[in-house]
Each structure stands twice: as C-alpha cells, then as structure tokens.
Design a protein around this nucleic acid. Sequence first.
DNA 1: CAAAAAAAATACCGTTTAGTATCTTTTTTA
DNA 2: TAAAAAAGATACTAAACGGTATTTTTTTTG
Lengths: 198, 198
Amino acid sequence: MTSMSKADTTRMNILNKAFLLIYMNGYQATSIDEIIATTQVTKGALYYHFKNKDDMGLSIIKEVMYPILYSSTIQPLARAEKPQLEIYKIMRNLLNDEKFFNVQYGCPFVNLVEEMAPHNTSFSNALKRLVVDWKEAIECCIEEGKKQGLIRDNVNGGQVAIFVLSGYSGIRNLGKILGRPCYNAYLKQLKSYLQSLN
Amino acid sequence: MTSMSKADTTRMNILNKAFLLIYMNGYQATSIDEIIATTQVTKGALYYHFKNKDDMGLSIIKEVMYPILYSSTIQPLARAEKPQLEIYKIMRNLLNDEKFFNVQYGCPFVNLVEEMAPHNTSFSNALKRLVVDWKEAIECCIEEGKKQGLIRDNVNGGQVAIFVLSGYSGIRNLGKILGRPCYNAYLKQLKSYLQSLN
DNA sequence: CAAAAAAAATACCGTTTAGTATCTTTTTTA
DNA sequence: TAAAAAAGATACTAAACGGTATTTTTTTTG
C-alpha cells in the first residue's frame, strides 16, 4: 500500500473528475470553472498542478485513459490462447462495461480522437500511442493464431487489427444514435467475421 | 434553372460555408463571429435567417448533409445489382472523396454524431434520420441479394448494415490518427467480410 | 411611384472563457 | 523549531461567446 501525499490526492482527484466531465461533455466544452466546481479544488490549486488546460488533458490521457485501456484490452490480448475468441470477448466486455463507459457517451478514447486529433498535435501524438499499442496487440494476437494454425496463413494481421478497431470505434459512435441494441448486432457480425478468418 | 432570390443566396452561402467550418473545427468550436467573418455576412443578416445557432446547425444537417449522403450512398444502393460489390464501392468512393471529406477531418456526419448526439436531442433526432435511412438502404440491399441467391439465407441484413456502418464510422475516426493508409487496410477487410456473406 | 415588408448592417449587452498575480496556509527539511 | 518550499485560496483580467435592439437599406407589392 503506497501512501499518497495530500498533493497527489488533489492531483488524482482533478484528473479523475475531469476525465469524467470530459468524457460526458467533450474536452473543449468542459470548462476549468466546471472542473474546479465539481472537484472542490480552487483554481490556484489546479494551476499549481497543471500549467494549463492542455497539460491537464494530456495528463488525463496518459495517467487515466492509458491504464484503463491497457488493463482491459492490451493485457488480455497478450495472454490470449484463442485469438479470435479473446478479441471477441474483449470487445464484448468493453461494450458491456458500465464502470468507465456508457452507451450515450460512447468511448472516451474515441471521443477524444474525434474531437482533438484533427487540430491538436500534442493530443494527436498522445492518442496515437494508445491506438498503435492496441493495434499492435491485436496484430500480434492474430499472427500468433496463424502460427498455431488457428487462423489462415493468407490473413493479414495488420489489416485485421485495423478492421477490428474501426468496428469498435464506429459502434461506439453509432450507439450514441441507435442505443444499446446495435451493440448486439455488431457483436454477432464481429464474431462471424472473426470466425471467417480460420 | 431555378433562379434564387438574393435572400436565398445569402442563406445558402451561410449554410455551405458554416458546414465547412463546422466540419473542420466542430460545431461548438465554430463561433458565430467566425461564420460571419468567412461568409462576409453580417450578424444581423445571419440572425434574420436563423433564430439561433442551433437552428442554423439543424438546417445544415437537413439541407446540406442529407443531400450529400443521399446522393452518394442511399441512391446508389437502391439500384444496386451486386449488393456486396455496390456496398464496397460506395465505401471506397466515400473514403476517396476529396470534395466533401478528407482524412484529417474525417466525416462530417460522424463528427456531428460524436459531438452532439449525447446531449442535444434536436441534433440527435435529425442525425438519426440520416443514420436510419442509410442503415435501411444497406439492409434492403442485403435482403435483395438474398432473394437473388447472391447472399446466404441465414445472413441477417440488419446486423450486416450495422456492422458495415460501424466500420465506416470507425475508420473515419481511426484515419484522423493513422492517416490514409489505414483506409486501404480497412477496405480490403471490408471486401473479404462482404464476400464471406455468400 | 409610394407604402409596406423583407433583408441586412451596426453597435452593443451580459456572460463565460482560460489564465494570472498575489496572498495565505500547509508541509517539508535542515 | 525555524526557515524554505510546496500547496492552495482569492480576486482579478482581457478576450471571446451567443444573442439582441435598433437603424438602414433593399426588395416586393398595391
């Protein structure tokens, strides 16, 4: 049990609460005033811990988002025995997760890519790390499946990774309009797509 | 050749230019002041034509976005002979379109869903019409293919439509981070997925 | 052409925004 | 425990925001 200083607690409090606000309202639409109101942290304290809003946003990506993504997707992929099944299960678990995600607000990573990547290189670079790591984890998983004879040799792991990621990211978008039912339709077709790889 | 009144020209000018600005910067990040600066239309004129910013935004969805979507996706789907090929071609054309879309900024529909659907019911409803119409066009196309024996009987058209749409919407998101190359990876897997339906 | 209506121009308002300067309190360190 | 450094509180700024009230110009209509 590592003890956290009061300062670290304040910092983490800001990061976690701001993460939620940004998830629900978007980065640019979440004001500093809103963040200090919900965290009960004063503006002086916030600007002591972060030099500006973007610095805080980047810290959220690195210290809040990345760990969530890592433990829920990259880690399970690394020790997958049946690649297709594992990929399917991860997506299913992700879509059914009610702790960090919900249907209305979609996925925090996807949201941030959508909003910030086109015009903010710092955000874009930070987010790219997440995407690339996730992509490579899927790719490795597929290649491993090929070695084990579970997946056809002529399957391109990189392509599959992109296709799977695009499906996930897209169903999060579609879910905002069509609601939860479309998650199930997506998952069924994902399963049959993955099965078609063997 | 229908002649447009000066007022209609002003209105259309606002709608088209604002569409582009919103596409590139997001709806909330595009200010009224920015719109009147690029359109060379005064604030008085803008607020004569639209009662507020949201009214203008909804008009853009209905009068600019819907026609683009309709002519580039729904119309071609209605007269498709080979469903799978037509769906593939539409996606390929859409992703290669340089008139209304580009890789950096993604897809204007997807962007707007992402940003506005979660917390604005007017926008959500207007966008839902586009999504549902597109989804049903794909679904009909698949069902027609089943009748013609080009697609397996046990394929669920509605599920396929959702899966295809999620892929499109998602690759637009991924493209913002990974650039154009991922479009090609996506298209290849889309093709093999569609082929697996027969 | 003249009156009426539509369209557009101008100046402004109240609020919110990210960020800062300054001061006070708390914690750490010698 | 006293000095130094870290952390937090308070009050403020200048710019940008969506929107409005009012006036002027243009177009339509009798």
